Structures are given as C-alpha cells and as structure tokens.
Simulated assay, not measured.
Amino acid sequence: ISGKNIFYLTDWRFNEFPNAAAHVLYVTCVELMSLPVGPQGIANNIIDVVLKGYTVIPHDQIHSWINAIGIILSSLPEAYWSVMYDRLHELITCNKMVEWSYRHSPFDMFNFKVVKESMLEKSYVLLLAVCQSVLHHSSIGQISTIADYIKDKLKPFVQNEYQLIYLCHLFAPFMLRLDQERPRIGYELTTLLYELLEQVDKKQSATTLKYMDPICDLLYHIKYMFVGDMLKVESETIIRKLRPALQMRLRK
C-alpha cells in the first residue's frame, strides 16, 4: 500500500511475474484462498478492513487502502468479489436508508469528500468507495455481470429515491467504459434504471419525489451520451406509466 517493495531485487524480465506488484498480488490471493474459511467470510473481513477499521487508517492513506482492497477482491474468484453485492443489499435495506431521517441530502451523504470533511456517517460512502474500486479494477467480463446482480439482489428491495440514488452512484461512473467495451450491458443498466424509477414512483405515489430533477438529468445524460434512441421504445413505454411531473421532465 505504501509503495515500498518488500521483495528481493531481481531482474523481472526473466521472472514469472512482470513486476513486484504483480508478485505481491498473486501471493496475497493465494494466501487468502488457502485460508480455512469460506469465500464469504474472507471477503467480508477484507471489506471490513476499511468499513470498520477506517478509524485507525491515516486520513491521507484511506484512498490507497480502498484501492488495494479493490485490486485484491477483483483478482479473486467470483465467490469472493460478489460478496460486495450482499453488503450492498444489507445497506440499502437497513432502516436508516429506508426511512431516511438524516437532515443532509443523499448527495452529501454519498459524497466521500463531504462526508470526510464534515464528519458525517461514513458507512454509505465507504462501502460505495470499496465497490467502485472493485468495479474499477474488474475485467470487462466481471463488470458485465453488474446488471444481473443489481436485478437479482438489489432491484426487488428498492422502494425510495434514496436507495435509487445510491445505486446510481454505484454504476453511473462506469457507463463510459461499458459503452466502449460492452454497449449491451450499458443498455441493460439504462433499462434497469427506468424500471427502478417506475418502481420507486409506484411505491411513493402518495408523496412528492424530492430529487426527481437530478434523477431525470442522469437519465438524459445517459440517453444523449450513450444509448441514443436504442431504447426509445422501452423507455417511452415506462415513461407513460410515471406520474405527470416525471413524464414532463423525461419527454421535454
């Protein structure tokens, strides 16, 4: 994490590994998989290094620790890195997320810099940062499973706009990469976002959506930057089912 090489000096040109960092990563993964503990227990403990141990990690090193966790988990088999979706499920279904009693907006609570500088509750941003780190270091084959995992493990439990905004923070940063490498997955995520918006709209039909403008702005950004008219039929079918205020914003 600190960048110091703990291995002996050697000519890596004639070594099994291309450099010291690759050697460290390989050794770490082998040691983790050889532990007499199941993948779920190992992955949860790795994630908890930051989620529970952030108090003893120097503030100027927290990003390096999160980055290291992302590299390690993404290098392990699916049984390990898929645990992050279980943790996401636990978080979005917790009482604080469902009821949302915070006086701060979700855009503050899900902003790493704001939370760090304002000493707000860190559980949301730390897990979000770890998951984004894992996805950032994942291969295109790994990140292509994100739509299926969200659909199977998270979508049925999204009931309010705070949960929806949290999921947007999770996958929106990777839309550009998906558009370049696997456009089909980007289309699936966009369709899923429309379906989630419809689901939230029905669940909160008796209340006003506070953050419909930012959500609609994201949908417009995705439409004009990535999907174009590829999902015109699917999106318009869902838009017709939404409340008038959302229809007006998404059709203008």
Rank of each mutant, 00 (worst) to 15 (best):
F107D: 10
A129I: 03
E99I: 13
L126E: 02
W81R: 03
S123F: 14
Q132D: 03
M97F: 13
Q132F: 06
V98Q: 15
Y102W: 14
Y80G: 05
D108Y: 08
Y124K: 06
L128N: 01
L120H: 04
H89F: 09
N95S: 15
W81N: 06
V83A: 03
T93R: 05
L120N: 00
V98N: 04
Q132G: 14
N111W: 03
F107I: 01
V83K: 05
L88T: 06
F110C: 09
H89P: 01
N111R: 02
S118Y: 04
V114G: 02
T93H: 05
K122G: 01
P106E: 00
Y85E: 10
W100I: 01
E78R: 13
A129L: 11
F107K: 03
A79G: 06
A79S: 14
W100A: 09
S75R: 10
Y102F: 13
R87W: 06
Q132E: 11
Y80W: 04
S133P: 00
L91W: 01
E78H: 09
Y80L: 08
I72H: 11
W100Q: 12
I92P: 00
E90K: 06
N111V: 06
C94R: 08
E90D: 13
C131V: 15
L88R: 03
L76K: 07
K116M: 12
M97Y: 13
N111G: 02
Y80C: 05
L127N: 03
P77Y: 14
F107C: 04
K116V: 12
V130E: 04
S75D: 11
Q132A: 08
E90S: 03
L73R: 07
Y124D: 09
E121P: 00
F107E: 05
V83W: 07
R103S: 10
Y102V: 00
N111A: 08
P77N: 12
L73G: 04
E117D: 10
V98D: 11
W81F: 07
P77Q: 12
A79Y: 02
S74P: 08
E99F: 12
M119E: 12
I72Y: 07
E90G: 06
E78D: 14
C94Q: 13
D86K: 10
F107V: 02
E90F: 08
V114K: 08
S74I: 10
M84T: 10
S105V: 02
M84Y: 01
Y124N: 03
L91F: 07
C94P: 07
N111Q: 10
K96P: 00
W81T: 11
K96R: 14
L127F: 03
P106H: 00
M119S: 12
L127P: 01
S133N: 00
L127D: 02
Y124Q: 05
L76M: 15
